[in-house]
Computed example of a mutant assay.
Amino acid sequence: MPLLRIHLDSDRTTARRVLQLHQAGRTHHESREAARAQVWRQGHTPAGDPVFIGITNGRRNVQLLYDVEVYSGAAG
Protein backbone atom coordinates (compact mmCIF):
# COMPACT_ATOMS: atom_id res chain seq x y z
CA MET A 1 0.00 0.00 0.00
CA PRO A 2 1.21 3.50 -0.72
CA LEU A 3 2.51 5.69 2.09
CA LEU A 4 1.52 9.31 2.45
CA ARG A 5 3.85 11.65 4.38
CA ILE A 6 1.92 14.11 6.53
CA HIS A 7 3.44 17.36 7.85
CA LEU A 8 1.64 18.92 10.81
CA ASP A 9 2.52 22.41 12.01
CA SER A 10 3.44 22.46 15.68
CA ASP A 11 5.18 24.52 18.31
CA ARG A 12 8.54 23.50 19.75
CA THR A 13 7.13 22.50 23.15
CA THR A 14 4.51 20.18 21.67
CA ALA A 15 7.00 18.74 19.18
CA ARG A 16 9.42 17.90 22.01
CA ARG A 17 6.60 16.28 23.98
CA VAL A 18 5.51 14.15 21.00
CA LEU A 19 9.12 13.07 20.44
CA GLN A 20 9.58 12.17 24.12
CA LEU A 21 6.38 10.12 24.12
CA HIS A 22 7.50 8.31 20.96
CA GLN A 23 10.91 7.52 22.47
CA ALA A 24 9.13 6.11 25.52
CA GLY A 25 7.01 3.85 23.29
CA ARG A 26 3.84 5.88 23.81
CA THR A 27 1.54 7.82 21.47
CA HIS A 28 0.49 11.47 21.31
CA HIS A 29 -3.13 10.83 20.43
CA GLU A 30 -4.05 14.39 19.43
CA SER A 31 -1.36 14.67 16.76
CA ARG A 32 -1.99 11.13 15.50
CA GLU A 33 -5.68 11.95 15.02
CA ALA A 34 -4.75 15.24 13.34
CA ALA A 35 -2.56 13.30 10.90
CA ARG A 36 -5.45 10.91 10.17
CA ALA A 37 -7.79 13.87 9.55
CA GLN A 38 -5.23 15.41 7.18
CA VAL A 39 -5.19 12.20 5.13
CA TRP A 40 -8.98 12.41 4.73
CA ARG A 41 -8.76 16.11 3.79
CA GLN A 42 -6.27 15.20 1.07
CA GLY A 43 -8.81 12.80 -0.42
CA HIS A 44 -7.33 9.49 0.71
CA THR A 45 -8.60 6.69 2.92
CA PRO A 46 -6.23 5.65 5.73
CA ALA A 47 -5.41 1.93 5.71
CA GLY A 48 -3.80 1.98 9.16
CA ASP A 49 -2.76 4.15 12.04
CA PRO A 50 -0.43 7.09 11.38
CA VAL A 51 3.19 6.28 12.30
CA PHE A 52 5.25 9.04 13.89
CA ILE A 53 8.47 9.58 11.92
CA GLY A 54 10.00 12.60 13.64
CA ILE A 55 10.08 16.37 13.74
CA THR A 56 11.62 18.96 11.46
CA ASN A 57 14.49 21.14 12.62
CA GLY A 58 12.98 24.48 11.69
CA ARG A 59 14.00 27.48 13.75
CA ARG A 60 10.58 29.07 13.55
CA ASN A 61 8.25 26.53 11.99
CA VAL A 62 8.43 23.06 13.50
CA GLN A 63 6.45 20.23 11.95
CA LEU A 64 5.53 16.76 13.13
CA LEU A 65 6.04 14.10 10.47
CA TYR A 66 3.77 11.08 10.13
CA ASP A 67 3.59 8.33 7.53
CA VAL A 68 0.17 6.87 6.85
CA GLU A 69 -0.63 3.87 4.69
CA VAL A 70 -3.51 4.68 2.35
CA TYR A 71 -5.68 2.60 0.09
CA SER A 72 -5.06 2.94 -3.63
CA GLY A 73 -7.82 4.80 -5.45
CA ALA A 74 -10.32 7.43 -4.38
CA ALA A 75 -11.47 8.15 -0.84
CA GLY A 76 -14.48 6.20 0.33
Rank of each mutant, 00 (worst) to 15 (best):
G76P: 05
L65A: 04
L65Q: 03
G48T: 07
D11L: 01
T56M: 14
G48P: 06
L8W: 01
P50T: 10
A37V: 04
H22T: 02
R5W: 14
D67I: 06
R32T: 11
Q38T: 10
V68M: 05
H22Y: 05
A34T: 04
G54E: 08
D11S: 03
L64C: 02
W40K: 08
H29V: 11
L21W: 10
H28L: 01
V39K: 00
A37C: 15
M1V: 11
E30Y: 14
A74V: 12
H7P: 11
A74N: 13
E69I: 09
I6R: 03
A24R: 11
E33K: 14
N57G: 08
T13W: 14
R59P: 11
V18I: 06
R17F: 09
D67N: 15
Q42A: 10
R26T: 08
G48I: 05
N61K: 10
L65Y: 03
R59K: 14
T27L: 07
P50G: 06
V62E: 01
L19C: 11
V62D: 00
T13N: 13
N61Q: 08
T45W: 12
V70W: 01
G58L: 12
D11W: 00
A15Q: 02
A15V: 02
V18L: 05
T45H: 09
T45I: 07
T45Q: 09
A37F: 05
Y71H: 09
G25S: 10
G25R: 13
Y66P: 03
Q38C: 11
L21D: 09
D49K: 10
H22N: 05
G25K: 06
L65W: 03
R12V: 00
L65N: 02
I53H: 06
A74Q: 08
E69V: 13
N61R: 12
L4D: 05
Y66S: 04
F52E: 00
G25V: 08
H44T: 09
W40H: 13
D9T: 06
E33L: 15
V68H: 01
V39F: 05
Q20C: 13
R32V: 14
Q38W: 15
V39I: 10
V51M: 11
H29E: 12
D11T: 00
A35N: 02
V39M: 08
A34K: 04
D9G: 07
Q63Y: 05
L19W: 13
P2W: 02
T27R: 07
H28S: 02
V70C: 02
A75C: 15
A75T: 12
A35S: 09
N61H: 12
A47K: 03
F52N: 00
T56D: 12
D67W: 05
I55V: 15
E30T: 13
N57E: 14
